[in-house]
């Protein structure tokens, strides 16, 4: 199992380098540079800036010095936020997004799994239909509608939470709910469809035939089989949630990483773009691996395939 883990990580290294390389050159082929502002700078200043940041060198040279810095864990200075290094920005902002993302992930799992399984158990009754309707709503409702709606009700009308900001722990509630809703709804659908598909399998009949109760059949026998699509989905979901969301962080004025994904690209802040891309791809790689390991914990057959 450990060998499998290490092998997967080693396999990921070339993929990671390929992504980083592709993005490195792509952003530089896009017209415009980091110092094209609304207010034009004089050609002399521009030349000085480019020279200072090493942008006057050939692409090849730039690429190798980037790789050299990367191998030391240095991502370089941000071109947009003078005086800040990308490492500093990532460390500070990612911590906020990570907290928000973990809250959202836990909410999405708890809400999604319970709603999904409940609607499968009650699939023939009205409650089950209503639950599955709600989950469809959760998928369709965009966060830029849900977020302001929650603010309107819980912050402005009921005064239960702050409308925006990131100071008290309670400030995490509304944004993580907003962020979680789509994932909760998606997980609910995966769990529901998985559970309903499992009910017609032979082992379910066997379980009933040996005298197991309906609750036991669902919670023990069906759940562990039906949860597998959810576990596979957890990898990409966690990567997306934990790296922050542009929309949610903008609505709730949260100083997270999500906004940098968009703004760094718009600003041609080359080093910051690389930082965002790397952190996102690293999360994808790591969380896909984590979800594969979880899958192995759920399904022994997958575990045995891994230890080969």
């Amino acid at each position: 199992m450990i060998r499998y883990f290490i092998r997967r990580l080693l396999e990921a290294v070339p993929v990671f380098i390929a992504i980083v390389t592709a993005v490195f050159f792509m952003v530089r082929f896009v017209p415009g540079g980091p110092f094209d502002r609304e207010r034009p700078v004089s050609p002399e200043t521009l030349e000085a800036l480019n020279k200072y940041y090493g942008l006057d060198k050939s692409l090849c040279e730039q690429y190798f010095s980037f790789l050299k810095n990367l191998s030391r864990g240095e991502l370089g200075p941000s071109y947009k936020y003078g005086g800040w290094s990308v490492n500093e920005i990532l460390a500070e902002k990612a911590a906020v997004s990570l907290q928000l993302g973990i809250c959202a992930l836990l909410i999405a799992l708890a809400l999604g799994l319970s709603a999904g399984f409940a609607s499968a158990v009650l699939s023939k009754s009205k409650i089950g239909g209503a639950l599955s309707g709600f989950s469809l709503l959760g998928i369709c409702l965009p966060s830029f509608v849900l977020g302001p709606l929650l603010i309107l009700v819980f912050a402005l009308k009921l005064n239960a939470f702050n409308a925006m900001g990131w100071n008290a722990p309670s400030d995490a509630v509304l944004p993580s709910l907003t962020l979680a809703m789509f994932y909760a709804a998606w997980i609910a659908r995966l769990a529901r469809n998985g559970a309903i598909a499992e009910t017609s399998r032979g082992y379910v009949r066997t379980a009933y035939a040996k005298g197991a109760s309906r609750g036991r059949v669902y919670l023990v026998h069906i759940a562990r089989n039906a949860i597998q699509p959810v576990v596979s989905y957890l990898g990409p979901a966690a990567a997306a949630l934990l790296t922050g969301s542009f929309v949610v962080e903008t609505i709730f004025q949260i100083p997270g990483l999500g906004r940098f994904f968009i703004s760094s690209a718009l600003d041609s802040d080359y080093t910051m773009i690389m930082g965002c891309v790397m952190i996102y791809s690293a999360f994808i790689i790591i969380f896909n691996l984590v979800s594969d390991l979880l899958l192995a914990a759920v399904n022994p057959r997958i575990a045995s395939e891994m230890s080969k």
Binding site: G202, R205, K210, G211, H221, R224, N225
Partner: peptide, 29 residues
């Protein structure tokens, strides 16, 4: 009825491969 199932009347089915739950050990089942 659950006290009858398995205890008084037990079943063996046609397809052993699908009649056992794939994610639990035989001993557990």
């Amino acid at each position: 009825l659950r006290k009858i199932r398995g205890r008084q009347i037990a079943y063996i089915f046609q397809e052993p491969s699908t009649s056992l739950n794939p994610v639990f050990t035989v001993g557990y089942q």
